[in-house]
Design a protein around this nucleic acid. Structure first.
Lengths: 271, 271
DNA sequence: CGTGATCTTGAAGGGGGTCAACTGGAGTGG
DNA sequence: CCACTCCAGTTGACCCCCTTCAAGATCACG
């Protein structure tokens, strides 16, 4: 009965229109002005004279590899990436799925070596900025300095949120939190916050959340059975955004948090 | 038979001498020069004229609270803190245990609001720097700008390491990794890397690692039984540093990592 | 249309959470 | 000084959620 919402517009890959949103359509030469506008900086004086190169990255292509020398940072203009950290034992931990307005390669600003890899999950494009130029530009353009600092802080805040989600939280709740974050990010990138296409495979989500891919699959099923969303492979439609947010707020160790969304209480009710 | 190493010097709280290590003993007025020297900056010209206030924090006292307005960042001169993030459901996630040369409050540099709290786990002291002054100082003193950026990058790298440790890693391995990091940090702060006193309770470690405090307790027992360390409440002595590092490198999902330290193989052998 | 990924679903087993009891040290006040 | 309380830490027992192993179903792509 609920199926129709997805079937219609899904899977006929409409990768057509998520391109420059607030920018002139693909200028021949890019400058720092474009970059600062993308990042939402307020004071952009003097930025128009600084040229900035743009790079396109194909699906599956690596923007940079772990262990490689870092000579640039990257501002995502469009598309989606995954960043992953491989331990020496070979285990791959997916850290994040950066998209528009996210900055990649910041973790190497000081060390000069990338401690993670970034791989494009779809056709994407980034502004490339040489690390060599960062200190000088920071001094000349306060707005740029502010942008970099903001990006670092946001990256830090994201990781903190990530850590909090991984400990002491049931599988379905982790997935719910992930979807809430993703939904907000999609909206920010100019897409629909309700219905969107996952760019990553289940295994990537699983690694990101610290679960097995089977459990992710099952958790999708649980959230669907609760009426919070619809899934069909990569296509997701959030039927009850507020309900999902409420569900995402619950903890495993919650014991008695009066009233609203206790996860397992709701699970029992749905069965 | 191994007991003696701990019993002797333990628990007669020698909190006396872990105070200024490379600094003149407690100057009446502190300047940015002291701060930059603490952080290991190379070029300190012009820093001596900028006054910096110092603040002492007692055991159990909060340096700042979550949700409070952030008007300063803090450079730890001596002591130990814990940083924790409380979700709205009341669950407290311990993020880290910062010590000497760590910087606190960075996550609020942009937002202006602390997204975590910092509590002293012993008598500690920090340099206080008003956020208001950061942009101007960054512009005037490149070394300071570099210091801030380095601190942000390091914080980011730490959290990445943290995330990687929380997913897909057995309890004893998480604890081993934690102890390896802690040992390095102790050495960095001028203490012994082999024998040290834990400033935090088991529950804090548990939260930090995403485990229950009972499991942390048991994991200590396992590592002790393996002959890697000795524990007696807060007092820890690493008997086999290299062995611990090797153990810390193993993963749960490791399957076949030829030869060295597979955790459960070693556990079976020890039983 | 066939081959290999991706995804789903089922069944079984174990790691670690939870509950509970006990010990020991620290602080308090009689 | 000792009884009392409180909290940190340890240990045992039980059980559940999630991982693992396995098989099928569906999709992507040459």
């Amino acid at each position: 009965m609920l199926h129709s919402q997805l079937k219609n517009t899904a899977s006929r890959r409409d990768d057509s229109r998520h391109w420059p949103v607030a920018l002139p359509r693909m200028p021949a030469r890019n400058t720092l002005l474009d970059l600062l506008m993308l990042m939402g900086a307020d004071d952009t004086t003097g930025a128009a004279e600084v040229p900035v190169t743009m790079r396109r990255v194909n699906l599956g292509e690596a923007l940079f590899h772990q262990g490689s020398r870092a000579d640039a940072i990257y501002f995502v203009l469009a598309g989606t990436f995954k960043t992953l950290h491989s331990s020496d034992d070979g285990y791959e931990q997916v850290l994040d799925f950066p998209g528009r307005t996210d900055v990649l390669g910041l973790e190497a600003l000081c060390s000069g070596v990338h401690t993670m890899a970034a791989v494009a999950l779809e056709e994407s494009s980034v502004y490339v900025l040489a690390i060599h130029d960062v200190p000088a530009l920071s001094r000349r353009l306060p707005a740029f300095d502010e942008t970099i600092r903001q990006a670092l802080c946001r990256a830090l805040a994201d990781r903190i949120e990530h850590v909090s989600s991984m400990a002491a939280v049931a599988a379905e709740v982790r997935l719910a939190r992930f979807l809430v974050r993703l939904s907000a990010r999609m909206a920010n990138a100019g897409h629909s916050a309700r219905r969107f296409r996952l760019r990553m495979v289940r295994r990537d989500i699983a690694s990101h959340l610290g679960l097995s891919h089977e459990t992710v699959s099952r958790s999708f099923g649980v959230l669907a059975k609760l009426g919070l969303l619809e899934v069909e492979l990569r296509e997701v439609c959030l039927l009850d955004g507020d309900g999902l947010k409420a569900f995402a707020r619950s903890t495993r160790r919650s014991g008695e948090d009066a009233g609203t969304a206790r996860p397992h209480a709701r699970l029992a009710a749905a069965a």
